[in-house]
């Protein structure tokens, strides 16, 4: 599904290097977790996957289903099945949530040569997905994310993910800001999407999420590099011991 090879990247306009040779492979159907200290480059990696222009790749490559995506626009990446649930979802005043969802869904369908959804079919899908995630439909009448609480924004990201049915889901700290019940609901949502053709890259600071979404692999990102890879027990070890031991060992 995803192969990140020796990826180096820096902030485009000032040149600070943030990723210093990331190597990471995520197989079809795999759930990979990325953990790592604040500022280690987790969000940067997720933005670069989604195609944000603020960062410049100076070395290495990102292969998605065997092909490099570095030259693709963010919308093309999305249409090919990549989705990023933002650590900090943006509020966009003036853009109605429903208009946004419909535009996004139909733009992706168009890019894949599929027919646009009819309005009733679209409404049916939104209603079903919102119901699963216990999102109050009234919220969807508001402009995109405007005035949503922190947790509501995170749930809205998962709603988008459920509707867009991506193949590779990158979730950047979706768990932070969620209350205990919401965490369970979101995890159930993710687990319902699990399939042999769909992979997840789950960025988190907390073992708790990984109790619900059990990862196949756990990777530690530190100072722009993957310094350790293991299975779900690695997350438990980190929870007990913190990062310093593991980072020192790797150095």
């Amino acid at each position: 599904m995803l192969e990140i090879k020796n990826l180096h990247a820096r902030v485009a306009d000032e040149g600070t290097e943030i990723l210093r040779g990331v190597d990471l492979t995520v197989n079809d159907g795999e759930i990979a977790a990325i953990m790592g200290p604040n500022g280690s480059g987790k969000s940067t990696l997720s933005y670069i996957l989604a195609g944000r222009e603020d960062y410049e790749v100076t070395e290495g490559d990102i292969l998605y289903n065997g092909e490099s995506i570095l030259e693709m626009e963010p919308d093309e990446r999305a249409a090919s099945g990549l989705f990023l649930a933002f650590q900090y979802p943006l509020e966009i005043p003036g853009v109605a949530t429903m208009t946004f969802l419909k535009t996004a869904l139909n733009a992706q369908r168009k890019a894949r040569d599929e027919d646009e959804l009819t309005t009733p079919e679209f409404m049916r899908r939104v209603k079903a997905a919102a119901g699963d995630l216990k999102i109050n439909p009234e919220m969807l009448k508001r402009p995109l994310n405007v005035g949503f609480s922190g947790g509501e924004k995170k749930r809205a990201e998962i709603l988008q993910m459920a509707l867009l049915e991506p193949k590779l889901c990158v979730m950047d700290e979706t768990d932070s800001g969620l209350d205990i019940d919401a965490l369970k609901i979101v995890a159930d949502g993710v687990n319902a999407l699990r399939s042999p053709e769909r992979s997840f890259l789950v960025i988190t600071h907390y073992q708790r999420l990984l109790d619900y979404i059990v990862p196949d692999t756990v990777h530690v990102l530190s100072n722009g590099r993957i310094v350790k890879t293991g299975d779900k027990d690695l997350a438990l070890q980190l929870e007990r011991e913190g990062y310093s031991q593991i980072i020192e060992e790797a150095a």
Partner: peptide
Amino acid sequence: DHLFYLMSRGIPGDQARALLIKA
């Protein structure tokens, strides 16, 4: 940032810009 958010959902640049201007 707004433009990137919309595009990351599959909305092409021109369409995303038009949406933001209208908004």
